[in-house]
């Protein structure tokens, strides 16, 4: 089972939690506005870590 990750919708700003693994073959959509512009927090964290380095 994939770990749960926080997603942020880049259209409406809604935040929600969903199972996520980088290789998941899942089409994601914001549960509130149905936009596909949903960003997983994990990727954000990675980017932050890289920036800190």
């Amino acid at each position: 089972m994939s770990p749960e990750t926080k997603f942020t919708c880049l259209r409406c700003g809604h935040e929600y939690v969903e199972e996520y693994a980088p290789d998941d073959d899942v089409e994601r959509a914001c549960p509130k506005c149905r936009s596909n512009s949903v960003r997983p927090e994990k990727v954000k964290k990675k980017a932050d870590a890289a920036e800190e380095k």
């Binding site: 880049l10 259209r11 936009s35 596909n36 512009s37 960003r39």
Partner: peptide
């Protein structure tokens, strides 16, 4: 702002 790049199917 990343919101300026949108993705839609």
């Amino acid at each position: 702002r990343p919101e300026r790049l949108q993705l839609e199917w």
